[in-house]
Design a binder for these strands. Structure first.
Length: 684
RNA sequence: GCCGCCUUAGCUCAGUCGGUAGAGCGUCUCACUCGUAAUGAGAAGGUCAAGAGUUCGAUUCUCUUAGGCGGCUCCA
């Protein structure tokens, strides 16, 4: 019953004759897999997987998908979603079905119910699911002979009827939706759950499959949370109650997943921000408005120093602009009314409306415009830490990654149209180098363009030709990088397309931070111009770019990426001195003074805690270098190291130790020091 | 903004079926001076998020507000 864990990850192909029963095929495949648990499916010409509940009419290749592969888990999760829906309609007969697809690590199912589900309901539903699975059901595929037949059978399910109508009408805009919603583009099919003992049909759901042959594959699942979600994801539609769950091929895999979740929770930047005393969100200030404590201040300053220095190296000039402005400026830029919802309400100063700024570009434009510009000045590159304020809806504020006031490392390059490709190339290289310096090495690009034929086309300004040129320039430069490029239609700013660098962190989540935007609109709105070599007045192209994106968000991502164990160069406390007894206080202070003289951030723990306690505290603070000194060390003019991983190096002469720490920080390395690496450095 | 849940000491959490509260850690004091993840003892610390209502009496029930959490939608 319990699936074997060690399974070949490659799908195995088994030729089975037409008309073979599902169970026979499963047995054949399982045999071939040498006893490993497998789900047998048919891969059709269009690449879609179909299960063998649908008996093929001709000889087909059958893939045995190991239960512990991504494809196998997807099938298990989808089938578990059906069992959940069945349980819901058992316990709450009035519940109407939305959709229930598999998602990363699990599944969900949406229901229209009068009363939202409670955590207690989840427990009840899990029990009902257990009962269903224990009773034994097989999943059986049935094709409707006509649209009318399907409508008739699903008369009690208004949302399913809507899906069928979408398919029936066949409007192109909804095709993708239909795919997501499991209807598919082939025949309309329903999956029946048939009792294994009584052979009775217990339940059924409009679905394209595939599914596991029977409930015996559903060994490990858990309902995790309940939330509201809009039908078809649109705010204009009614909200349904969504139940999330996770499902795995074995109890061991489920437990491993739950353990991973716990570990991920431990590196949550909101939790570490408190534990490491980095920042807080005082309620007295307001939601989404962080304050940085001294230790967080160090990290933030390291980030700012780095990015300021790099911008200057890359030809940017550092500027400064105010936090508020007359409202008219944002009408000129075109941000109002597009952005009105994201900006805080205006306030009057001497009868004139002012706004907190939500973006810096208009002010940089005024610097460009402050005097006549020559083509000889281009590219003109302006950079600042621009503090912006955005009236984020209360429900979206989240730690440092979504706040209401933040600093952008915002820059604008003013270039001729001909210079634009080179400038974008330059910026992209700059960004990728920066991300690597902060230890991010796994990224891909996203190209956000105008929604060409969608309903939101009026959200974008400028001519078709301008958009086409701008999009092409960005696309070309992106493809040169060789990085994976994901299209994002409709995601552009109203004034132009953008490319963003998506970073995957240490635990595989991706974040959008850096963006480069091509803007042909704002220069026109501001009447920006420069005198060209031929004496004519020309309009520059403006390229917006932010490398961190927001200092706050990048800070939060860094905390999670490193789980608080920052590289030495950005650690708030780089070295912590620990005297083993009070007798070594002066000795360790002297060593600390040497390190401070070398520009290092050093603290000494002079508390009357026992030395073991001091080590524990330093360990919890993830201090990279713990420097201990006891009587053995003082006698030898030496110190002893302990590192984050618990390794230690004893009796290192003071000068060696100081020199070593200096060398470590002189090169910006992003790994944590360990006894082995440090010993090699000393030996070398 | 929408749906649901939550808010008790600086932190993590008990508890009160309506009669105004406890623990551990942290903080402070004292003793201990210790060789790589928690020394011991004592003390201080809470208008039970804020406001209103119901009640003889509200931290507990109801409503409103603020803040948080999980989603949805939206975004750097």
């Amino acid at each position: 019953m319990s699936p074997a864990l060690a399974v070949a990850s490659m799908p195995l192909r088994v030729q089975i004759p037409a008309g073979t029963s599902a169970q026979t095929a499963v047995n054949a495949a399982e045999l071939a897999q040498k006893g490993a648990e497998a789900i047998v499916v048919v891969r059709e010409a269009d690449g879609h997987l179909r299960d063998l509940a649908w008996i093929p009419e001709a000889d087909v290749d059958v893939e045995a998908i190991a239960a512990n592969t991504a494809a196998g888990r997807t099938v298990i999760r989808h089938s578990t979603a059906h069992i959940l829906a069945q349980a819901v309609q058992q316990v709450f007969p009035a519940a109407k079905l939305g959709i229930g697809p598999p998602v990363t690590d699990g599944f969900y199912y949406d229901f229209a119910v009068d009363e939202p589900f409670t955590p207690d309901d989840l427990t009840k539903l899990e029990a009902a699911m257990k009962k269903i699975i224990k009773s034994g059901q097989r999943f059986s595929r049935r094709t409707f002979s006509s649209l009318d037949e399907a409508k008739n059978e699903l008369a009690g399910e208004p949302f399913k009827l809507e899906l069928i109508d979408v398919k029936g009408a066949g409007t192109s805009a909804d095709v993708d939706l239909a795919e997501v919603m499991e209807v598919g583009d082939g025949d309309l099919t329903i999956y029946d759950n048939i009792g294994m003992r009584d052979g009775e049909r217990a339940w059924g759901d409009l679905c394209r499959g595939p599914h596991v042959p029977s409930t015996r594959y559903l060994a490990a699942y858990k309902l995790t949370r309940v939330a509201a979600a809009y039908w078809k994801g649109s705010e204009d539609n009614p909200q349904l109650q969504r139940i999330y769950g996770t499902a795995w091929e074995s109890k061991e895999a489920l437990e491993a997943y739950l353990y991973r979740l716990e570990e991920a929770e431990k590196r949550d930047h909101r939790r570490l921000g408190l534990e490491l005393d980095l920042f807080s969100f005082p309620e007295e200030i307001g939601s989404g408005l962080p304050v940085f404590h001294p230790k967080g201040g160090v990290l933030k300053r390291e980030m700012e120093d780095y990015v300021r220095r790099r911008h200057i190296e890359e030809g940017f000039e550092y500027v400064g602009t105010p936090h508020i402005s007359k409202e008219q400026l944002f009408h000129t830029s075109g941000h109002l009314p597009y952005y009105a919802d994201s900006m805080f309400a205006p306030f009057k100063v001497d009868e004139i409306d002012y706004r907190l700024k939500a973006m810096n570009c208009p002010m940089h434009n005024l610097i460009f415009k402050s005097r006549g510009r020559s083509y000889r000045e281009l590219p003109l590159r302006l950079f600042e830490f621009g503090h912006v304020y955005r009236a984020e809806k209360s429900g979206v504020v989240h730690g440092l990654t979504r706040v209401r006031g933040f600093a952008q490392d915002d820059s604008h390059s003013y270039v001729t149209a001909a210079q634009a490709p080179d400038e974008i190339r330059h910026l992209l290289k700059f960004v990728l180098g920066l991300l690597r310096d902060f230890g991010m090495s796994d990224f891909y690009l996203e190209l956000s363009t105008r929604d060409e034929d969608g309903a939101k086309k009026d959200k974008f300004i400028g001519s078709d030709e301008q958009w086409q040129i701008a999009t092409q320039v960005l696309a070309d430069v992106c493809s040169e990088t060789g990085l994976e490029l994901v299209p994002d239609p409709g995601g552009a700013a109203y004034y132009g397309p953008k490319v963003s660098v998506q970073v995957r962190d240490a635990i595989g989540r991706s974040w959008q931070m850096s963006t480069i935007q091509y803007d042909f609109n704002m220069p026109e709105r501001f009447g920006l111009e420069y005198q060209a070599a031929d004496g004519t007045r020309q309009q520059p192209v403006m390229i917006h770019s932010a490398k961190f994106g927001s200092i706050e968000r990048f800070f939060g991502v860094l905390v999670e990426h490193y789980a608080g164990a920052f590289p030495v160069w950005m650690s708030p406390v780089q070295v912590l001195g620990i005297p083993i007894s009070a007798e070594q206080d002066d000795y360790i202070d002297a060593v600390a003074a040497k390190l401070r003289a070398a520009g290092l951030r050093v603290e000494v723990d002079h508390s009357d805690d026992r030395m073991q306690k001091k080590v524990r505290n330093a360990q919890l603070q993830k201090t990279p270098f713990m420097l201990l000194a006891g009587s053995k060390d003082t006698e030898a003019d030496a110190v002893s190291f302990r590192f984050r991983d618990g390794s230690q190096l004893n009796a290192i002469p003071i000068d060696d130790a100081v020199g070593l720490i200096e060398r470590w920080t002189a090169v910006r390395r992003n790994d944590s020091p360990t006894a082995q690496v440090v010993a090699e450095m000393i030996a070398g």
